[in-house]
Design a protein around this nucleic acid. Structure first.
Length: 940
RNA sequence: GCUCGAGUGGUGGAAUUGGUAGACACGCAAGACUUAAAAUCUUGUGUCCAUUAGGACGUAUGGGUUCAAGUCCCAUCUCGAGUACCA
C-alpha cells in the first residue's frame, strides 16, 4: 500500500480529536465579559440529561446555533454561546424510586458518563456533545439542580413572593409599598391584580393579628398560597400545570388527571396577561408560536352584566362578548359548580339538580371533553330578571358552562350562539330572533355582520355600534361594566415531588414565611423518594434537622418547585455563572442583554416560553434587568423522526420473510434494530444473536440471497430500535460530515425522517475540498494570481453563503459550498488566495477540517476569529447575459447579448435571429416584452 | 369545529422581490481504473411521444389575474401542528 497516499488522505478522526483538544486547552470560545466588541448571544434550549443519551435529533438545533455563533465570531462579534442542563426532573426521580439511587447521582452520570445500577454504559451528554465540535464556552455551564444555581432560583421566588402587581403603574412593586398603603388607607383605593374583592379599612388592617395580615397579603402576592382547583395526577403523585396536560392526560406518561381542590403555591401570571400578549409584537418568532401563545392567553373583550334573581338576594354575574345581543337572551346557564345553584334551586327541582351536579362532578376532564356532542342540563326552577326589559328568564345549569372561565355563568342568546341554540332547541326553550332578515330556524347566526332588531334602543344598529351603545347603557344604569377577560390561568407553582428546588419557606401554623437567610435551602436527604403514608410529599420525610438551614417555625415547606422554575431564568445565569452575591451582576446583564438567537423545540410554546417571558418582565419591573423580552429571535427546529426497520414473520411457520416475498405469506411485522441494517439489507447473523429467541431463526430471502427489511417512519425512540446516535456516525464519517449532513437534510424548521443514505454525498464533498489542497503526495497550494473564473466562483459562494446564513437558510449553504468546491475542482484551482477564503467560508459548518487546512496554509492561530471574506461584486459583473427567449411564456432557447443594449436594441437583435423566425413560422408577433438582464417574451 | 403551516422527479430538497421549474445531493443506469471489491472518476437520469431532429405535458385539484404563476387571488382536497364547549 502507498504510504504517502495515506498521509495525504482526509483523516477526520485524528484531525477532529486534535482540534477539539486545542480548543479546550486554549479556551478558544470563551466569551469576554468586558469587551468593546458588539455582543451576540446565541442560545440553545438546554437539555434534560436523560440516561438514554443523545440521538441525532438532539444536536440538530445545536449545530445550527453553533454555525451561527461561529459565523458571528468571524464577523467580529463577542459571542456568548453557552450550554448547560435542565437537570431537575421526573425521570431521574422515577429511577430513584425504583433503585433507591439518589437522583443527583444518576443525573451526574447522565451528564458526565459512567455506568448505571444495572451496569449499562452511559455515554454522558458532555462526551457526546464534545465529539460534535461545538463552540460552547463550557466555563459557563449551569445545572439547575446544583445548589449554587438553585440558590438564585429560590432568590427569585422570594422576590416574586415579596411583590404585588400595581395595575395603576402597570408593573410589579415591592410588597412593602402595599403594606404601607394598607396601614394608611386600607385597600379601597388600591388597583391591584387580585381575586380578593372585598374592601377593608386601615383600622381593619391595623387591628388584625400578624397571621391575619399575612393571610390577607397572600391575596396580593405574585407568588401565593391558596386553595386551588388543580390537575391532580395520582400516577405521578403530583399536580400538573395546564401546559403539562395533553389531550386530557399527563404529557409525561399519559396518565389520567383529575380535578382536586388543594392548597398550592401559584404564580399570578395573569397580572401580566396583557403585556405578554402585546409584547409578542416585538419579538421575531414564528407566527405559529405567537398564535399559540395568543390563543393560550385568550383575550376577549365584552362586558360583565349583572342579572337579579327573582325572589332572591343573590345576583348572577355573566361575562359576554356580545352585549349587543342582550335582548336576545331567553335563558341563563350556570356551571353545575356555581355557588348560587344551591340557593336558588326550587324545592321541586332540588332532586334533579343535585343528581345532575353529582353526575357532572364525577365526570373526569377527559370524559367531559370526549362528550362534547351530548347536550345536557337541568332547570333550577328559578328566574332571573332581564336588566332592561324586566322579563323573567329561566335559570338552568349545564356542564357546557365551565366554572373556571369568566364568572361560571352565561346569558344565553340562542339566536346568536350555536351552543345556546343547541341547548334551547334540545330543551324547547324560546329562540327570539334579534337579527334583521337573518334565518335562525336551522342554526344560530354567529356572524358579526347583522343589523340588530327587536332590541329596544339597539334597533337598526350594526353589531359594532350596538356593542358600544349596549356597554354604555349597561354602565350608565349600573347593570355592569365593559370588561376584558383572559383564558390564561394563574400558574400552579408547587409539585409534590422530591427532585426539584425546595422552597425557601417555612410555616408557623398554616401561615407561610420566607426564610430570613441568604443561604441556599438545599434538598435534604430522605429515606425514600415516595410520598409519606398520609400522602404528604417526599420532603415531609425529612426531619427538621435534616435541612441545612434552621427552621424557625413549625415545619419547612414540603412541596418543591415545578420544572419550569429553573429554566425560566437560566439564560441570565450564563452571563455570570459563578457570581456568589447576585443572580447576575448588573454590568454583565447590561452588556449581554437578551438572547439574540434562540433555537429549540416548538413544544415549549405554552410552558417554558411563556414562563420565562413572565419572569423576565417581572425582573424588569423590579429593575434587575434592562429588557422586557428574553428571546429576540427564535427558530424552532423540526423533529427528526426515526426510520424503523421491520422484519416480517410468517405466522404459520415462524420463519422470517424478506420484504419482496412477503405477499406470499401471512405475516406479522416487528421492529428490528436499525444497526443490523446496511441500507435495507438485514445482517441476519447479528439479528440471530440479538435475542435468544432468534438464535435459530430461519430466513426466507430474496432470490439473490439478501434479506430485505420494510421501513416505517416513527418517532425516534429506544422501544422502536430506530435510534441513531451521533457517536456512530462521527466515528464513521467525522463530526464535520455529521454537522453538514444534518443541515443538508432540509430546512431547519421542518420535521423530517432520519435517513443516513445521503451522508456519503456530504462526506464526499469534504474529501473533495481536502483534495483541492493536496496533490497525490503532499499539501500543495499555489501563490499564483487567481483567474477571473476562480474569483467568480469564490465570490459567488461568498455572496450566497453569507446571505443564506443571515436568513437562517442553513441547508442551502451546504449546496452552495458544494457548488463552489465542484467548480474549483473543475478549474483545478489550488490558489492560496481562493482557498483561504474557502476555508473561512467552510469553517462554521466544518470547523475541524477548516482549522486543519488553515494551519496547513501556514497560520499559527485558530481561524475562529479570522475575518469573514468580503464579497466583491466586481468579480461577478458580466458584460453579456444569456437571455431566455420565450414564446407566449414558454422558454425555447437562450441568446447571449451584451448588457449595454437598450430594450429596443435587444428586441431588434432577437427578432433578427434565425431561431426566432423559425419559432414564429411567419406569424407577426403581437407584442415583445423585454426585461433587461432578465428575459425576453414574444407574444403572438 | 376553529387557528396556523405544508403539498414540487424514484428520494431529501432548490428556485430571496412573479421572469430559464427540478440547483445540490441520494438512488438508479452505463462506462473507465482494478484479477476482484471498495474508493475514485466520466456520462446519462421529471413524465409521455419520437430512431434522431424535436414535440407535448408538468410544482395536490379546479378556476382566475398577468406578456409571464411553484410564487399572487378564489374555491376544493389531503397531510401535519396547536386548541377544544372560553360565553
Amino acid at each position: 500500500m502507498d504510504l504517502k497516499n495515506i498521509v495525504m488522505q482526509y483523516q477526520f478522526n485524528t484531525i477532529e480529536k486534535n482540534w477539539q483538544k486545542y480548543w479546550a486547552e486554549k479556551k478558544t470560545f470563551a466569551a469576554e465579559d468586558n469587551s468593546v466588541k458588539p455582543k451576540f448571544y446565541a442560545l440553545d434550549m438546554f437539555p434534560y440529561p436523560s440516561g438514554a443519551g443523545l440521538h441525532v435529533g438532539h444536536p440538530l438545533g445545536y449545530i445550527a446555533s453553533d454555525i451561527y455563533a461561529r459565523f458571528k465570531r468571524h464577523q467580529g462579534f463577542n459571542v456568548l454561546h453557552p450550554m448547560g442542563y435542565d437537570s431537575f426532573g421526573l425521570p431521574a426521580e422515577q429511577y430513584a424510586i425504583q433503585t433507591g439511587q439518589h437522583p443527583a447521582v444518576t443525573t451526574k452520570t447522565n451528564i458526565e458518563g459512567g455506568t448505571d445500577k444495572d451496569g449499562n454504559v452511559i455515554p454522558g451528554y458532555r462526551n457526546q456533545l464534545d465529539k460534535i465540535g461545538f463552540s460552547f464556552d463550557w466555563d459557563r455551564e449551569v445545572r439547575t439542580s446544583e445548589p449554587n444555581y438553585y440558590k438564585w432560583t429560590q432568590w427569585i421566588f422570594k422576590q416574586i413572593f415579596n411583590s404585588w402587581y400595581n395595575n395603576e403603574s402597570d408593573k410589579a412593586e415591592k410588597i412593602d409599598s402595599l403594606i404601607e398603603k394598607f396601614k394608611a388607607e386600607g385597600n379601597s383605593n388600591i388597583k391591584a391584580t387580585t381575586d380578593f374583592e372585598e374592601t377593608f379599612s386601615a383600622s381593619d388592617w391595623n387591628s388584625w393579628s400578624e397571621e391575619e395580615q399575612q393571610k390577607m397579603l397572600l391575596n396580593y402576592r405574585l407568588a401565593y398560597l391558596s386553595d386551588t382547583w388543580v390537575n391532580w395526577c395520582s400516577a405521578l403523585g403530583t399536580v400538573l400545570a395546564n401546559d403539562e396536560i395533553k389531550n386530557g392526560v399527563s404529557e409525561r406518561g399519559g396518565h389520567p388527571v383529575e380535578q382536586k381542590l388543594m392548597r398550592q403555591w401559584s404564580m399570578r401570571i395573569t397580572a401580566y396577561a396583557e403585556r405578554l400578549l402585546k409584547d409578542l409584537d416585538t419579538v421575531d418568532w414564528t407566527d405559529s408560536i405567537k398564535d399559540i401563545q395568543r390563543n393560550w392567553i385568550g383575550k376577549s373583550q365584552g362586558a360583565s352584566v349583572i342579572f337579579d334573581v327573582d325572589g332572591h338576594d343573590g345576583e348572577i354575574e355573566v361575562f359576554t362578548t356580545r352585549p349587543d345581543t342582550i335582548f336576545g337572551v331567553s335563558f341563563m346557564v350556570l356551571a353545575p359548580e356555581h355557588e348560587l345553584v344551591a340557593k336558588i334551586t326550587t324545592a321541586e327541582q332540588k332532586d334533579k339538580i343535585e343528581a345532575y351536579q353529582k353526575a357532572a362532578s364525577l365526570k373526569s376532564e377527559r370524559d367531559r371533553m370526549s362528550d362534547v356532542k351530548t347536550i345536557s342540563g337541568e332547570f333550577t326552577g328559578a328566574y332571573a330578571i332581564h336588566p332592561f326589559s324586566g322579563d323573567k328568564i329561566p335559570v338552568w345549569i349545564g356542564d357546557y358552562v365551565l366554572a373556571s372561565y369568566g364568572t361560571g355563568a352565561v346569558m344565553s342568546v340562542p339566536c346568536g350562539d350555536q351552543r345556546d341554540w343547541d341547548f334551547a332547541n334540545h330543551f324547547n326553550i324560546d329562540i327570539p330572533n334579534i337579527f334583521k332578515d337573518k334565518d335562525i330556524s336551522e342554526a344560530a347566526y354567529a356572524e358579526k355582520d347583522a343589523v340588530i332588531t327587536n332590541s329596544d334602543f339597539l334597533n337598526d344598529l350594526p353589531v359594532k355600534k350596538a356593542t358600544k351603545l349596549a356597554i354604555y347603557e349597561i354602565e350608565q344604569k349600573g347593570f355592569g361594566k365593559g370588561k376584558t377577560q383572559y383564558k390564561l390561568r394563574n400558574a400552579v407553582f408547587s409539585r409534590q415531588r422530591y427532585w426539584g428546588e425546595p422552597f425557601p419557606v417555612y410555616y408557623n401554623g398554616e401561615t407561610p414565611y420566607l426564610l430570613d437567610t441568604n443561604d441556599v435551602v438545599e434538598l435534604p436527604e430522605v429515606d425514600k423518594y415516595l410520598p409519606t403514608a398520609d400522602g404528604e410529599p417526599p420532603l415531609a420525610r425529612a426531619k427538621k434537622d435534616a435541612w441545612n438551614v434552621d427552621c424557625p417555625g413549625d415545619r419547612m415547606e414540603h412541596n418543591t418547585m415545578p420544572g419550569w422554575a429553573g429554566s425560566s431564568w437560566y439564560f441570565l445565569r450564563y452571563m455570570d455563572p459563578t457570581n456568589e452575591n447576585e443572580f447576575v451582576a448588573k454590568d454583565k446583564v447590561d452588556y449581554w442583554q437578551n438572547v439574540d438567537l434562540y433555537i429549540g423545540g416548538a413544544e415549549h410554546a405554552t410552558g417554558h416560553l411563556l414562563y420565562s417571558r413572565f419572569w423576565t418582565k417581572f425582573l424588569y419591573d423590579l429593575d434587575y434587568i434592562p429588557f422586557k423580552e428574553p428571546f429576540k429571535k427564535m427558530i424552532n427546529q423540526g423533529m427528526i423522526q426515526g426510520n424503523s426497520a421491520l422484519v416480517y414473520r410468517d405466522i404459520d411457520s415462524g420463519k422470517f420473510v424478506s420484504k419482496g416475498k412477503k405477499k406470499d405469506y401471512k405475516t406479522s411485522s416487528l421492529h428490528a434494530d436499525i444497526n443490523f441494517l446496511d441500507g435495507d439489507i438485514l445482517d441476519t447473523e447479528r439479528f440471530k444473536n440479538w435475542r435468544a429467541e432468534y438464535n435459530n431463526a430461519e430466513f426466507i430471502t430474496e432470490d439473490n440471497g439478501e434479506f430485505i427489511c420494510g421501513r416505517e417512519i416513527d418517532k425516534m425512540s429506544k422501544s422502536k430500535y430506530n435510534v441513531q446516535t451521533p457517536d456512530v456516525l462521527v466515528q464513521k464519517y467525522g463530526a464535520d460530515t455529521l454537522r453538514c449532513y444534518e443541515m443538508f437534510l432540509g430546512p431547519l424548521e421542518q420535521h423530517k425522517p432520519w435517513d443516513v443514505q445521503g451522508i456519503t454525498g456530504v462526506h464526499g464533498f469534504l474529501k473533495k475540498a481536502w483534495r483541492l489542497f493536496h496533490n497525490d503526495e503532499a499539501f500543495e497550494v499555489s501563490d499564483a494570481e487567481p483567474t477571473k473564473e476562480e474569483l467568480k466562483t469564490i465570490h459567488k459562494a461568498i455572496q450566497k453563503v453569507t446571505g443564506d446564513i443571515e436568513r437562517y437558510s442553513f441547508n442551502t449553504v451546504v449546496s452552495n459550498l458544494m457548488i463552489c468546491v465542484n467548480e474549483l475542482t473543475a478549474h483545478k484551482c489550488n490558489k492560496r488566495i481562493i482557498l483561504t477564503d474557502l476555508v473561512v467560508l467552510m469553517s462554521p459548518y466544518a470547523p475541524h477540517i477548516a482549522e486543519e487546512l488553515w494551519s496547513k496554509l501556514g497560520n499559527k492561530e485558530s481561524l475562529t476569529y479570522q475575518p469573514y471574506p468580503k464579497f466583491d461584486e466586481s468579480h461577478l459583473i458580466e458584460s453579456n447575459h444569456k437571455y431566455p427567449i420565450s414564446f407566449n411564456g414558454k422558454m425555447k432557447f437562450l441568446m447571449e447579448l451584451p448588457l449595454t443594449l437598450s430594450k429596443e436594441e435587444i428586441e431588434k437583435e432577437v427578432m433578427a435571429n434565425e431561431q426566432t423566425k423559425k419559432y414564429l413560422a411567419g406569424r407577426e408577433p403581437k407584442k415583445v416584452i423585454v426585461v433587461p438582464k432578465k428575459i425576453v417574451n414574444i407574444v403572438g
